[in-house]
């Protein structure tokens, strides 16, 4: 990303500083800020800043993966494939982090770490979809062919994941807020204190994901250079 990025925002280090500031703010408010008193949830509502935000960061990273896939197919530039690969990898890491934070939360509020819930099924499905993406990548040794097949698969995969986690849960009951008679997010989303932490937290975690991905991309580029010179 850094010098090669098409977005001015990602040049320089200001966005990295912003990420750190927002995350410090998130952690400070997450442990010390005031939260509304809710039945069942009680103090676990603080996990909102550390669980839901993982999904947001994951979705942004996986969307970037699909966009890099489309851009690779139209240009054939292998560097875009490298970016797509790293976006998917960090997307998976955030996905797993979201799953773990969710399981801890579920254990205290719903009584079990793994329950039948469309949102949870959607997560397991997206992790499996992207696991298959990595299986495909590992099955091909020729880099230009791998890039092309992976790009095609990733576009299909992103659309299917979107259908699975965004469209289908709307049609069925869920334990998650706002569905199947559960108290909606709006109820505490309206609490302006929490909103003032939640949105910065989403941006902070997403930027951290981008930072993480950028570092990995730069390592991979250096590795490629060393390989070429050797």
């Amino acid at each position: 990303m850094s010098q090669g990025s098409s977005f001015v925002f990602f040049r320089g280090f200001a966005w990295k500083a912003l990420s750190l500031i927002l995350l410090f703010y998130t952690f400070y408010q997450g442990f010390n800020g005031t939260v509304p008193e809710m039945p069942i949830l009680h103090q676990t509502i603080r996990n909102l800043y550390f669980h839901v935000t993982m999904w947001m960061a994951m979705l942004v990273l996986l969307l970037s993966n699909a966009i890099y896939g489309i851009r690779f197919l139209s240009s054939g530039n292998l560097d875009l494939d490298l970016k797509a690969d790293e976006c998917a990898k960090s997307g998976m890491i955030f996905g797993i982090a979201g799953l773990v934070t969710g399981m801890i939360w579920a254990n205290y509020t719903w009584g079990a770490p793994w329950v039948n819930d469309p949102q949870l099924n959607g997560t397991a499905a997206s992790l499996l979809i992207y696991a298959a993406y990595f299986v495909l990548r590992n099955a091909i040794s020729e880099s230009s062919k791998r890039a092309k097949l992976a790009a095609v698969y990733s576009i299909f995969a992103f659309v299917m994941m979107f259908v699975f986690i965004m469209v289908i849960p709307k049609l069925s009951d869920s334990l998650h807020p706002g569905k199947g008679g559960n108290p909606g997010f709006n109820k505490y989303d309206l609490d302006s204190n929490m909103r003032m932490v939640f949105y910065p937290a989403v941006i902070g975690w997403t930027l951290l994901g981008a930072w993480f991905t950028e570092l990995r991309i730069r390592i991979r580029r250096i590795e490629q250079k060393i390989e070429l010179n050797a």
Binding site: I129, A132, M160, V167, I168
Partner: peptide
């Protein structure tokens, strides 16, 4: 391996 995950929805 590649087909099943895409067929989830």
């Amino acid at each position: 391996v590649l087909g099943f995950p895409l067929l989830f929805p």
